[in-house]
Design a protein around this nucleic acid. Structure first.
Lengths: 187, 187, 187, 187
DNA sequence: AATGAATGAGGCTTCATTCAT
DNA sequence: TATGAATGAAGCCTCATTCAT
């Protein structure tokens, strides 16, 4: 089953516009189509599971980061959160891009929702433990930070920024989020 | 041709992902497939053109906003930019969502690039005319603002935020961007 | 109408597998499809007419040769007939090949028959006027000669013989036909 | 796969030129289109393979004849070669005709070349073993004979000769070829 | 008489899925 | 449980032909 996932990613990643077919996935995974259909009732389920697995791993990573930052300053938390997410999305950019694309013909609402809940819970817990800050409206602040960070990374991908520009943006994003927190504190 | 675009959007909008067939588009547009193919060499070209048209209109709108803000304060500019983009994306949310999705099996790099260039030019020109601020590194600041704003809106869409949450986020985004500019000024 | 014929030949001749479409023929001929359909009731009629025209010209050429050989020796006649046909088929080989191909989806029986009748009449008349030979069974001999000569040329085309081989074959064909006539005389 | 070939021939044979569609072939062969496409990547490949198979069988037949004539007199060889080819092309005339036609939208150069090489090799070997003749320029003589024989048969088909005329021509062709060999010997 | 946009039947091909082995 | 040949619905696209202007 991991072989199937790997094969799917490889095909999704491949530049050639050769579409992702179940036969091709099975072939590359070294199993028969029949076997593939033993694991996944249909093609959508495969792509769905692939994304679920990816988001699961991503959520875990974020949760780990959040746990590790328990009790730190808000600034440190921010940096850790941004760095983790940025790193996760950037280390295998083609995979990131491929998954972004694969999701198009999928109703991934549930997936996103689950992921969002987990992340929101983790980051909310983290921020509420900040040693130096008390958040008046944590829910809204948290939503804002998470949405801005995740959205910015995605948009950076879409623009196809080169490494320099991406690094610069990474730094500026941190700056901006810090400024946001400062502004909230002074309000 | 406008009828064809409209039909495409309608089908893209309709639930049931894979409804977009050239035959169906033609049918709904009230023309024959042959006619459709007289305007667009193939299906991809149709989707491409649809997105081009959309981004064209969006760019124009942003440019208009930028022109109108010439010489204003940076804060006003920020608000105008965010409001315009938010409004543009929000007024027909299903269309926005549909186009986001439609782009998946398309090489829209060129499209994005053209759009980005136009927007960057317009916002850069706007910010450089700010009556109250001098930007040390306008290019980077501009890229940051644009990427953050656009990315946040997209992510908000993906999360399927309800109106209240969205409105709140909208406000917080403005706040954050303002805080960013203030922080830059005080640096 | 000549422009249309010319355009058809050009498209038929072109290497690209681009198929012969009425629209393309009209375009290249510098007229509208509508006009093309004023001259030819349908596509087949066009191709038919093109072949008719070609065979007409070829028949005329053969008839002229035959008339010119009236009263000559059989050997001279043979040489003149072979040379004329060979020359006619060889001077624009792509055209020859294109027409051979174009005929595939056509019922050209009538065309061939008409052509065959004309040629048979001409060659029969010629051979019967030979100063040095009396043919016991002129009809059969004539059919044999004509079929062999025409068939050989066609087969030479199909094999794609190079110039040297083709020239050699041309000479040998003459030799063979002469030997045939001699053999008949000695029988 | 044989069923598919048979179906193709049947459809090719049927009057009404343009009957050959992949769907129809599959239907008549009693398989699904999908299956057809498992054997042949596309329609052209099917027609190509059909011709390849036909020429393969024809070549084998000619080779067998040539082997059987090893050491015979040249006259006997000639007769055997002509009879074999004539017979092969004549026993199922509609098939012959259909294949001649089918080849029109095909690049069959390679096919013809392979066939020609095989036949040339076989007939050359045969003629060089003739008990009663030494050929000064075997290559040229062989090419001439083969081209003349094959071409004549094809042309006879095109003319749609009735049985009597065809039989007569068959005899005369043999006569002519024999005369050719005699002439060469006396030169 | 000429135009050429519009038509739409129908061809080729793909690919998710099944099921007998 | 694994296989993979077979299926066939359905998509994309072409192109001969028409007809309003």
């Amino acid at each position: 089953m991991d072989a199937i996932f790997e094969a799917t990613i490889q095909l999704l990643t491949r530049p050639g516009a050769e579409n992702l077919t179940t036969t091709r996935v099975a072939e590359r995974a070294g199993v028969s189509v029949g076997t593939l259909y033993q694991y996944f009732p249909n093609k959508q389920a495969l792509i769905y599971a692939l994304n679920a697995r990816y988001l699961e791993a991503l959520a875990e990573r974020i949760e780990a980061t959040c746990r590790a930052q328990e009790g730190q300053t808000a600034k440190n938390m921010l940096k850790a959160l941004i760095d983790t997410y940025w790193q996760a999305k950037t280390e295998r950019p083609e995979v990131t891009r491929a998954l972004y694309r694969s999701v198009a013909d999928l109703d991934n609402t549930a997936l996103i929702e689950t992921f969002a809940h987990r992340v929101d819970a983790a980051t909310t817990a983290m921020f509420s433990s900040a040693s130096d800050t008390e958040f008046a409206n944590l829910a809204e602040v948290n939503l804002t930070l998470v949405t801005v960070i995740f959205g910015t990374v995605r948009n950076a991908f879409e623009r196809g920024l080169d490494t320099d520009a991406a690094d610069g943006l990474h730094g500026q994003l941190l700056l901006m989020c810090e400024a946001y927190l400062s502004a909230l504190a002074n309000a």
